[in-house]
Write a protein that binds this DNA or RNA. Structure first.
Length: 1144
RNA sequence: AGUCCCGUAGCUCAGUUGGUUAGAGCGCUACACUGAUAAUGUAGAGGUCCGCGGUUCAACUCCGCGCGGGACUACCA
């Protein structure tokens, strides 16, 4: 136990950071905090795994500060908070990084470099920045267990993933289907969405577009459209920029809320009369020009075609209408050629009716599926089915098709001439760029058949493959899906039980996402990731999903017996041995799993589906996989699931937040997390996104090196709510350093300085709070209010408010008010009860603050705590992080006292303002202030803080002016909140009347207690409760107002007051000289002052006062100085000579 | 394009259930303090509460339509 409170020359938070880290290491503080604070059971936290193949940025400091602060708080609150670190190791960014480093492309994998070598490179590459991450974690004070992190490429982790997938598979929730994906026929590969977002991918191209006419079938559904028409047929018109998809059309979509019209006009190519249906809003663009001309005035070939609106109806009425196939090349399955409704339909362009080809558009695919519309598929010779366009981008040649299929479904007469042609000329290197496109030929064909209303070239933006520069095709690709839609209701229901911060992310972004949930496409055609554990027979009739290493081993055994495999790569694996050695005997990654051939129940070979699974499944499964569940931790799993708390950036809403939620919902029927904070982005100080390219990224290491982690953490949490974007400005960090930490440090230094002088060690008996001076009781009351407030904020996951409340307490109330007003109690004087009370009070404030702020600023608070506690030994714990979180003592909260002090602070501030206005410095005493008191209550409150105010503003006396005194000028203000509901629209006039009352009227109102008048014949009766009467002015005085408070200051400076002011000036100068001369605080001195008019008189009168304040044994006025140490000072514009010497 | 967040002083942010003088810090200007001192305090100036409509006696606050910034999801006739 130290004998003194440590004192420092200055505050170097960066150094504190380093020192405390060493202490934590030496004392094993983190681990002990997890073990020792387990009074209230477990509090479960999940760490979202970062990918260690990127370097950490300042934004990671934000989310990790949130996580750390909450976990530290919960630890102090008595929970056991285990935190397991994790690494996300699979995925595209890793692969792309490796491709770049090795200078290869995806096509080279398996040719120029073996999959084995490639994956080895990935495995090494993904961990290349782990050192940096660990260093940041350590330096920023993020307490998380990095010794045993979960790693997603670990075989044990993968085994749990396989187990999870098998659960889904067994429930029928894992199935193979197809999805529309961007595909480059020229490169022969699918493209990921991020590849489409590469700069330059979307390019303006000039394509043939057309508005096609779909002939409606007259039946019960459509009968209403055929009434009152003079044409035999009625058409719906749909616009497309890709006419080559029209042969694959199987539906038309309309907007249910969109208004459509039936129009009678003429086909501009055949000149035949037509009746068509289009969206009302688009009439003008489809039929430009003459709306009113008589139909009969039309001459074939006229440029302006007349039209006439015959009818109008909502899109929803069109649903279910059948139409005739537009191009009859191939017959789809039954159920096609129907009008459906879709929310995605707009009237921005086209006709307000969308042509749907489920094989070539994502929206189309989805809309088709939802409405039971079959896609247009063809059966090929090999028995497989596919769209009418093959993977090369060509219309499937008849020779490639199954013969039976051709006979039953294909109209060879019409298809001939189109089959075997590329849908984009770019795909055929032999075609000249100006050769007619398939689009044009289809449009021309439709024109001849009278089935097209307009053909035109149009420029639009279309994605291109970044490798081949050729247009991308949206193409159906085989993929494995999780039927998340089957769990939609459950997931929505569970989501409603989650405490989201902010709420809007949960209900809005996340909630809406759940409502519009689609099945989860798990498939990725890559190399470095978790392989899909599904083996399929050659004819695809038999499937097997593997759910564990042991099961795989067993299945391979069968395969070896069947002669399909020569050896079992898992032969040394021992089931039930969960050591890393045992799991290191094989590798579940590609290419090894691909080499495993299994045997089906009927004895045929089964090959693994080559897909990997979405890495988001890896991270979303971490609640299970980090525990290697159910192979380990099966019994105690309920202790680690679900999480009480997680936190990541909002960008994870559809990423980690969703996959966690989805997997937990599907596997356990539970939420994965109960509370969540989703934070916003960290932008640069100008609000721009940080990026290395722009050079505006802030390096967290530099920031910590310069300022220490505490100001950084504090700034990030208190500057803005974490879900708002943070405009990061390093100046703000510096401000926090000065403002909060500087003030806290100064307060401690002040305490330590005097406590050491007085040898205060807090060994004396605690003075009961009730016996301490009012101002002590005030700050203790405020401290307990703060404890209550901060605890509430932390419990509510509102770290911002917690930090702001602490900061406000320290800078405004503790330092700027309590310490400032009480300085004299600490220095001079005896070591008596009052002084002891001051020490005990200030000590308690500092110590409590250290514990309150510890979750946010773990370093400095630990220094502060150990400096205090190291001397007093009050707590057993050797670190603030091992102490419990303070609990408020409600008995010590005195709201009335807090209110009184607020009055004191406000009045003082007002008086200081008045002094400033008339230019009288605070050191000059003034005689009195005047306070109007409206009621006894207020007078009592004021009386309690009277002396504080007088001392603070250096005024000698108070005079109360009571209500009846006529010196006051009063003002009446209506209470709108009270009167509003009562008088409604008369309020404005009542307001005018009340605030226009004269002094006499107010007085009489106050006397009678009632005011009655009439507005517009309506009687208005007011009592004094309905208005607020404020004493606003006192003629002839300096007066200040703030809300209901009014104060007047007597600014007359009498000679007596002037003398006193001068004496104070001397005290001030002498103190300066003492300090400059390097005297010790306790040295006694002799003071000689030159005798000059007022000055001499002032000094003579107050020499004992000056002496007592400056420890001068003698204060004299002299004519001449004998000793040499004489200097000039200026007192109230007068030059005076003064000598200050130390007594020997 | 859809969904969500944000928009209040030059900058960063508060602003309770709508109630009549919209607040704080930084910065700026001035002054003060000088035994907490490479600190600090006080005051002043500074506002179209993004715009336009609406509801209401009353809108920074509630509703609608826009504008600007950002995120995510799409990219579609």
């Amino acid at each position: 136990m130290g004998k003194r409170f440590p004192e420092y020359k200055n505050l170097d938070l960066a150094q504190v950071n380093k020192d405390i880290l060493k202490v934590w290491d030496a004392n094993d503080t983190f681990r002990r905090s997890v073990r020792e604070m387990n009074g209230r059971g477990e509090y479960v936290f999940y760490e979202g795994p970062p990918s260690a193949n990127g370097i950490p940025g300042i934004h990671h400091v934000l989310s990790r500060t949130i996580k750390d602060a909450v976990c530290r708080y919960k630890t102090q609150a008595g929970y056991e908070v285990k935190r397991k670190a994790g690494w996300d190791t699979h995925g595209l960014p890793v692969e792309l990084g490796v491709e770049k480093a090795l200078g290869i492309t995806k096509e080279d994998i398996g040719t120029k470099i073996s999959i084995d070598d490639y994956n080895k490179a990935c495995r090494i590459d993904v961990m290349k920045y782990t050192d940096m991450w660990e260093e940041l974690t350590r330096k920023m004070g993020y307490w998380i267990n990095m010794e045993h992190p979960y790693v997603t490429y670990d075989n044990r982790y993968i085994e749990t993933l396989w187990w999870l997938l098998k659960q889904l598979y067994a429930g029928g929730y894992l199935y193979q289907g197809y999805t529309i994906q961007p595909y480059s026929p020229a490169a022969g590969t699918g493209l990921s969405s991020h590849e489409l977002n590469l700069p330059g991918c979307y390019r303006d191209v000039r394509d043939t577009t057309c508005i096609a006419q779909f002939r409606l079938i007259r039946d019960g559904h459509s009968e209403f459209l055929f009434r009152d028409t003079d044409t035999e047929d009625v058409y719906m018109m749909a616009w497309t920029t890709t006419p080559w998809t029209l042969p694959s059309n199987t539906a038309l979509a309309v907007g249910p809320e969109i208004v459509y019209v039936k129009v009678r006009s003429f086909n501009p190519y055949t000149y035949d009369p037509v009746t068509v249906i289009v969206a009302k809003d688009l009439l003008g663009s489809i039929f430009p020009g003459d709306a009113v001309r008589e139909l009969s005035a039309y001459n074939p070939g006229d440029r302006k075609i007349p039209y006439k609106v015959l009818d109008e109806f909502m899109g929803s009425r069109l649903a279910g209408i059948n139409y005739e196939q537009l191009i009859d090349w191939v017959k789809p399955d039954p159920g096609a050629f129907r009008v459906i409704t879709g929310d995605f339909v707009t009237t921005d362009d086209g006709t307000g009716i969308v042509h749907i080809a489920p094989t070539f558009g994502a929206d189309d695919h989805r809309a088709g599926k939802e409405n039971g519309i079959p896609p247009l598929l063809v059966r090929r010779k090999d028995g497989t089915t596919g769209p009418l366009v093959d993977k090369r981008g060509y219309m499937v040649p008849i020779t490639d098709l199954d013969i039976d299929f051709v006979r039953e479904r294909v109209n060879t007469r019409t298809y001939t001439g189109f089959e075997g042609r590329p849908v984009k000329n770019e795909y055929d290197p032999l075609l000249s760029p100006d050769a007619d496109t398939l689009d044009v030929d289809i449009a021309v064909m439709l024109k001849q058949q009278g089935k097209v209303f307009r053909i035109e070239k149009q420029v639009h933006s279309y994605p291109h493959c970044w490798r081949t520069d050729k247009p991308v095709l949206y193409y159906p690709m085989d993929a494995w899906f999780i039927r998340t839609t089957a769990f939609r209701e459950k997931m929505i229901e569970l989501n409603n039980t989650i405490n989201w911060k902010p709420v809007s992310t949960g209900t809005g972004r996340f909630g809406k996402w759940l409502e519009n949930l689609v099945d989860w496409n798990l498939s990725r055609s890559r190399y470095w990731g978790t392989p899909l554990p599904i083996w399929v027979s050659g004819d695809r009739t038999e499937e097997k999903c593997i759910g564990s290493a042991a099961e795989l081993k067993e299945e391979i055994e069968k395969s070896v017996k069947a002669g399909f495999m020569t050896a079992n790569p898992l032969k040394d694996f021992i089931e039930g041995d969960n050591s890393s050695e045992n799991y290191g005997k094989f590798d579940l990654h590609r290419p090894f799993v691909d080499e495993i051939i299994l045997v089906s129940p009927t004895g045929s070979k089964m090959f693994r589906e080559p897909d990997l699974i979405d890495v988001w499944f890896d991270s979303g499964a971490m609640p299970y996989a980090q525990a290697h569940y159910p192979f380990e931790n099966k019994e105690n799993f309920s202790d680690m699931f679900p999480a009480d708390f997680i936190a990541e950036g909002v960008d994870q809403t559809r990423g980690w937040f969703f996959t966690l939620h989805a997997i937990a919902s599907m596997i356990s029927g539970s939420v994965a997390f109960r509370n969540i904070i989703s934070n916003g982005l960290v932008l640069d100080k100008n609000g721009n996104k940080m990026s290395k390219r722009l050079g505006n990224a802030v390096d967290p290491f530099t920031a910590i090196e310069e300022y220490g982690s505490d100001p950084l953490r504090w700034y990030m949490l208190t500057n803005a709510q974490p879900w708002d974007n943070l405009k990061f400005d390093i100046e703000g960090v510096d401000e926090v350093r000065r403002k909060f930490f500087g003030t806290l440090y100064n307060t401690y230094s002040f305490f330590a300085l005097y406590a050491n002088i007085d040898k205060f060690r807090y060994t004396e008996k605690e003075i009961p709070v009730g016996e301490r001076p009012e101002i002590d009781r005030w700050i203790i009351s405020l401290l307990n209010s703060l404890v209550r407030e901060v605890g509430k904020c932390f419990d509510d996951y509102d770290l911002t408010r917690a930090g702001r409340a602490i900061q406000d307490f320290v800078t405004e109330n503790l330092s700027n008010w309590y310490v400032r007003l009480n300085r004299k109690r600490f220095w001079g004087g005896d070591y008596d009860k009052d002084k002891l009370a001051a020490y005990q009070t200030l000590y308690r404030c500092l110590e409590t603050v250290s514990r309150l702020a510890a979750p946010i600023a773990p370093f400095y608070t630990d220094r502060l705590f150990t400096d205090l506690n190291g001397t007093t030994g009050h707590h057993q714990e050797d670190s603030v992080h091992l102490t419990s979180f303070p609990v408020p003592d409600h008995d010590l909260i005195d709201e009335e006292l807090e209110e009184k002090m607020e009055i004191a602070q406000k009045i003082s501030s007002m008086i200081l303002g008045l002094r400033r206005k008339v230019n009288i410095k605070v050191r000059q005493p003034l005689a009195r202030i005047m306070i109007p008191v409206s009621d006894e209550e207020f007078r009592k409150k004021f009386e309690a803080v009277r002396d504080l105010i007088l001392a603070e503003v250096n005024v000698k006396n108070v005079e109360y002016i009571d209500d009846t005194s006529s010196v006051l000028i009063k003002k009446a203000k209506p209470d709108f909140r009270l009167l509003g509901p009562r008088y409604g629209r008369l309020m404005k006039q009542i307001g005018n009347i009340v605030s226009g009352l004269t002094q006499e009227e107010i007085t009489s109102f106050e006397n009678t207690g009632a005011l009655v008048f009439e507005i517009d014949g309506q009687k208005v009766e007011l009592t004094t409760d309905d208005v607020e009467i404020i004493s606003e002015d006192i003629p002839g005085w300096q007066v200040a107002n703030d809300g209901r408070l009014t104060v007047a200051l007597d600014v007359t400076v009498t000679d007596e007051l002037r003398y006193e002011g001068i004496a104070r000036e001397f005290v001030n100068r002498i103190q300066n000289i003492r300090k400059e001369s390097g005297f010790d605080v306790t040295d006694k001195i002799t003071v000689l002052i030159e005798d000059m008019d007022v000055i001499g008189a002032a000094v003579r009168r107050h020499s004992s006062y000056i002496g007592s304040q400056t420890l001068a044994t003698r204060v004299d006025v002299v004519r001449d100085f004998t000793n040499g140490d004489v200097r000039d000072v200026e007192i109230n514009d007068i030059q005076v000579r003064i000598s200050v010497s130390r007594n020997c």
